[in-house]
Write a protein that binds this DNA or RNA. Structure first.
Length: 547
RNA sequence: GCGCCAGUAGCUCAGCUGGAUAGAGCAACAGCCUUCUAAGCUGUAGGCCACUGGUUCGAAUCCAGUCUGGCGUACCA
């Protein structure tokens, strides 16, 4: 809000001086509040081309600057040539009034109006249960999708899965082995590369309960039936877990449909036609070496089965064909290798690969008091996302998985997560919201009517002004978090906002502060509550009314 | 070997499209409840920003190299 205003008067001043094509004037909020509310280094940027000392240029600029004293209180030069602006309390009072006008929509923007975004995340095949790493993928994808929505985009949340192929057969064989061990022969051999998780035994038990005695032959038909049973079982669990953390995707895209509709064959033909695919050693290869990558790769194995690359490419092409302007893929770092292949192929097919935004998050390690909790796949003692949700709750899980940058390894400390106390950061945010609600409850109990404040200029206390300053930034923080695809940007901001509110609450009594001031403070608290609630909603965390 | 991610306070992490004295939370220490929720507030202490060199008015940030950890590097996905 301050930036747009300031930019224009600076452009005018620079024109006056004779600089008609100034570089983009960048403003930032100084870390040190003594440096004012807004700061620009434009004079230093111009020093090179103007061949003058930065401070001299700054002096010239501020002498030319035309501004309203009622809005900008002070303009000063500092350090090597920064120009610092200080806005008046009246300006902040005015700004708060403007913010309150957006009501429940506070934080929304129209940046992406008319643009369609597809966000694909989770995309786990139905061969097992979700674990902690999937959880990170899920909440990042879901939150990024929400950020796009709040920025005005039309968003599709998508889950891509494969219910054919080797892994599913493996699942079927694993279940069959456990089934036979329980029903007929405890020594029945378990497939070497089978799924060792305990959940396979649960599936087998359920299978026994429903199909006992009808599946002893180990025939092809049996396995097909078992496979379907296992698929449904796993998918059911996965969806249940996702629903627990408020994730409900719009589209479940089945890889198999790409085969059935002939899209895969079409893709092979097209790649062959373009001279990008060739046969060697009984397999079909793609000429990635001509698309800027190091090595050619197999797209159809000599067995006739395609590798994962082929459907991945076809799937991305379909996403383009479906008309999305932005295509977001959320992957764990173990999938990095596939990305260059898909992007290169997509470009070769004539699509703009810059529309694909790949978000790669690093792994999660579960620790407890500094000790790593083992999550081994082989022993089957893996900590599932459901286990964690049971133990610490949905809000804590979502917040912990979102509070770090996506490219850093995330340490999930069980001991802290379990604490239902002040050391747990998620409660700090929720508490701020609950506290505000409680003030309004109090007011109601005492028969006080809350109405639109007539005089926000009564808000002059340092902690009031600081809170307003933060509130002004709420919409731009959402845009920033969206552009960077970094949910933690919003999480960090909300912590700051909560802190500013707690300080305000501590310093300024709201009820009984005199009618006009009280109403102004109600407005400040109310706007803070809206920002807090909206921010938490975007992160997928509840905003409790009472704690 | 090659590629991606990371290395910042005791711990977990921000800051990384170069800018003013490097920030936060937790942990530690010292304070604040007869007043709207103390799950809160205030203060103190804590740092060769992995290492070496380069780029410039200025580097945690950019470049090169080295070291350490994670993930990849399939006719698995």
């Amino acid at each position: 809000m301050q930036i747009e205003h300031s930019k224009q008067i600076f452009i005018d001043a620079l024109n006056e001086i004779g600089i008609n094509n100034p570089p983009d004037i960048k403003f930032e909020t100084p870390k040190n509040p003594e440096h004012g509310d807004l700061s620009t280094n434009i004079a230093m940027q111009l020093a090179g081309t103007m061949k003058k000392a930065p401070r001299a240029i700054a002096q010239q600029i501020i002498e030319t600057l035309q501004y309203d004293n009622d809005i900008i209180e002070e303009v000063s030069i500092a350090g090597p040539g920064f120009i610092n602006l200080k806005f008046s309390d009246n300006f902040y009072a005015y700004a708060l009034g403007k913010l309150a006008e957006s009501g429940d929509d506070f934080g929304r923007s129209a940046m992406g109006k008319g643009q369609r975004v597809n966000v694909e995340y989770v995309s786990v095949n139905p061969t097992g249960l979700l674990h902690l790493g999937h959880g990170r993928n899920a909440v990042i994808g879901d939150t990024v999708a929400s950020l796009y929505e709040w920025c005005g985009y039309d968003v599709t949340r998508e889950y891509y899965f494969n219910n054919a192929g080797n892994q599913m057969n493996n699942l079927a064989k694993s279940i069959y082995a456990r089934y036979m061990q329980q029903v007929a022969d405890p020594g029945f051999e378990f497939p070497e590369d089978g799924y060792h998780g305990d959940y396979i035994k649960s599936i087998a038990s359920d299978l026994i309960a429903t199909h006992r005695g009808t599946l002893k032959e180990g025939t092809y038909q049996d396995l097909t039936k078992i496979r379907k049973f296992g698929e449904n079982w796993c998918f059911e669990k996965i969806k249940q877990t996702l629903t627990r953390i408020y994730i409900n995707q719009d589209v479940f895209y089945n890889e198999d449909s790409l085969y059935k509709s002939g899209k895969i064959k079409e893709l092979i033909d097209e790649l062959t036609e373009k001279g990008l695919a060739y046969d060697k050693d009984g397999a079909k290869w793609l000429r990635f070496s001509e698309l800027g990558l190091n090595d050619d790769r197999v797209i159809v194995k000599s067995s006739g089965e395609p590798t994962y690359r082929l459907p991945d490419i076809a799937y991305h092409r379909e996403k383009f064909r479906r008309g999305f302007d932005i295509i977001v893929d959320v992957f764990g770092s173990d999938h990095v290798a596939t990305i260059p292949d898909v992007l290169a192929a997509i470009q070769a097919l004539g699509f703009d690969k810059d529309k694909v935004k790949v978000l790669i998050h690093q792994f999660v390690t579960l620790t407890e008091n500094g000790q790593q909790v083992k999550m081994s796949k082989r022993t089957g003692k893996s900590y599932t996302l459901d286990d964690l949700l049971d133990e610490v709750g949905e809000d804590v899980v979502r917040f912990f998985l979102l509070m770090r940058g996506i490219s850093t390894h995330l340490e999930f400390d069980l001991a802290i997560a379990r604490q239902q106390s002040d050391t747990n950061p998620v409660f700090y945010l929720q508490y701020a919201h609950a506290r505000i609600c409680s003030v309004f409850d109090q007011a109601k109990e005492r028969g006080i009517t809350v109405r639109d404040s007539q005089d926000l200029t009564l808000l002059k206390h340092e902690s009031e002004i600081n809170l307003i300053k933060l509130l002004i930034r709420f919409p731009e923080i959402i845009v920033l978090a969206c552009n960077k695809s970094e949910p933690h940007v919003l999480a960090d901001y909300l912590r700051e906002l909560a802190a500013a509110f707690h300080i305000f609450y501590h310093n300024c009594r709201i009820i009984c502060s005199g009618e006009n001031l009280m109403q102004a403070r109600f407005q400040l608290a109310g706007t803070t509550r809206t920002a807090m609630r909206n921010g938490l909603t975007i992160l997928g965390i509840s905003a409790p009314v009472r704690m």
